[in-house]
């Protein structure tokens, strides 16, 4: 079996790596947060607390797997599975490095957006099936937030698509080899994509669907054990996904000086964004729900449309 796009080995390695990285992020996030808050963070389990992840996993697997008697059992169990599935599927189109990837799809960008939309079902189902008012409120917020921000997310990438002339993510990276990183021509697109990405993965400061202080834990209030763990890991997977997309779309994917292999550059760039997302959590407070919606529709939408318009005008005028 060879290590090429679509090979079984490649799929296996990517799946394993992505999940391990997401799990490790539990530790990374806690450590980084504590550094920024002048604390030490988890440092007791293993060297530097690295095995904290193992401890957490043991805990989460051995917890009572409880389905509330009043919940709709089928969709209650289904919801966390959906989020895991759709995010992992999204990874299938990510070009990690030359020859490393699951599929080389020419609708990669559309596939990612489609999968992100499906993620909304997970949250909706979790909230509805829980039969809990906090969960319902959380899922309503999540649905509104995800659907709204998907719009700006999609529009913000269109500039990149237009510049590269392809929906194929691998081709977008290759196009950046010739034209330079799209962060420069598409800076506004990048900012919007970044913001929409935070909202899409409901990370802080946009964790409105699960705002502890207001609605307990939002849509996953009733979840425990590994079903909660799947939401939890799903969130980190989303984080990795958004970081990878930013790297691919705006920062030239695996491209970099050749003294290191491409996969290393990809990982480095992605980690910078992961760290940035964690910094956001450490620094920025959560806006109100209505502020988030107003900001999206009244500011991001016109800006992203304007960005697309100007990009189009420039492309047309230069070709």
């Amino acid at each position: 079996m060879t290590f090429e796009v679509g090979s079984g080995l490649s799929i296996g390695v990517i799946l394993a790596t992505v999940i391990v990285v997401a799990a490790m992020l539990i530790w990374v996030e806690r450590r980084l947060l504590s550094f920024w808050q002048e604390r030490l963070g988890p440092n007791r389990v293993g060297p530097f607390g690295l095995l904290q992840v193992v401890a957490d996993m043991i805990k989460i697997f051995t917890k009572e797997d409880w389905v509330p008697p009043f919940a709709d059992k089928f969709s209650f169990v289904l919801a966390p599975a959906i989020i895991m599935t759709v995010i992992l599927l999204s990874f299938s189109v990510i070009p990690f490095a030359p020859g490393v990837g699951v599929v080389d799809s020419n609708i990669g960008v559309l596939f990612v957006l489609a999968m992100a939309s499906l993620g909304a079902y997970s949250v909706m189902l979790a909230g509805l099936s829980s039969d809990n008012k906090y969960a319902l409120l959380g899922s309503l917020r999540a649905a509104a937030q995800m659907i709204s921000y998907e719009v700006f997310m999609g529009i913000s990438i269109l500039g990149v698509v237009a510049l590269s002339g392809s929906f194929n993510l691998r081709e977008i990276v290759l196009a950046q080899e010739e034209n330079g990183w799209y962060i420069f021509p598409q800076f506004i697109g990048f900012v919007i994509f970044l913001i929409a990405g935070v909202a899409e993965s409901h990370r802080l400061p946009f964790d409105i669907p699960e705002a502890e202080q207001e609605i307990c834990a939002g849509y996953h209030t009733e979840y425990s054990g590994m079903k909660f763990g799947m939401f939890f890991v799903g969130e980190y997977l989303g984080l990795v996904l958004i970081s990878s997309l930013i790297t691919v779309l705006f920062f030239g994917g695996w491209l970099g000086p050749s003294f290191l292999p491409g996969i290393f550059w990809f990982a480095l760039k992605s980690f910078v964004f992961i760290a940035f997302f964690i910094l956001l959590r450490a620094a920025i407070p959560r806006p109100r729900y209505d502020q988030l919606m107003t900001y999206g529709w009244l500011f991001l939408l016109p800006v992203s449309l304007l960005n697309l318009l100007i990009t189009g005008v420039i492309i047309l005028s230069t070709s």
Binding site: F35, E38, L40, L279, A283, I284
Partner: peptide, 21 residues
């Protein structure tokens, strides 16, 4: 506001932790 905040928080990376073990 936001960017300065981000920077300020980030700069805590070089501050010694207060935690007493």
């Amino acid at each position: 506001s936001q960017v300065v905040t981000l920077w300020r928080v980030f700069s805590h990376l070089w501050v010694k932790a207060d935690t007493v073990e």
